[in-house]
Amino acid sequence: MSSRERILGRVRRALADVPADEVPYERAVAREYAREHGRRSVAETVDLLAENLADYRAIVHRCADGELPGLLARLLAAHGSRNVVVPPGLPPGWLEGAGAEIVHDRAADTPQELDRVDSVVTGCAVAVAETGTIVLDGSPDQGRRRITLVPDHHICVVRVPDQVVGAVPQALGRLDPARPLTWISGPSATSDIELDRVEGVHGPRTLEVVLAGGGQDGRTAS
């Protein structure tokens, strides 16, 4: 007997007490929890995202669409980045005027090569206000998972308000499980020394999130 059959047989014997006509999944789980906590306007949701991102030590910036290239150039310069890796589908123009050398994802193919790159700039798939989370799904403006992992500085652009949801259930509803997903809430951190949170272990130690869109300075109308 294969282990597969052995394990499945054990499971079935262990569950001899379960009636054949047990309530199906749909009725077994009462989803009485909230889809979102509290009522917020669109602008308030974006504000909450900014607040929670900052609470976990992401550096948050806001700008109007037109100001994005200028802001990205300034952030890369301020970080002292000599080069920046970009996913294949980063909107043309975002890095216009950036002083850093642009490295295309495929060019830096090995992890060692990526390790010599200072920064990465990407978009995102969705952002979650209540938890201060950005989610990457490997779309062309986000690229392979490794490019947002090995460089020490990640700048992630969130289009507001379109890409922002209030809470985790809404985010899952927007995501495709078939894609590789990375949920990011603040820079790399650890609680392993005396259960106290310290930022900066293996992932990017600096996470900057740019909330781009809306009117001037990126504020959205309520």
């Binding site: 499980p177 590789p180 990011i184 809430s185 790399s188």
Partner: peptide
């Protein structure tokens, strides 16, 4: 005790 842990990976 975090609203969300820094990283969650999902793969299929």
């Amino acid at each position: 005790a975090e609203r969300m842990n820094p990283y969650t990976s999902m793969w299929t």
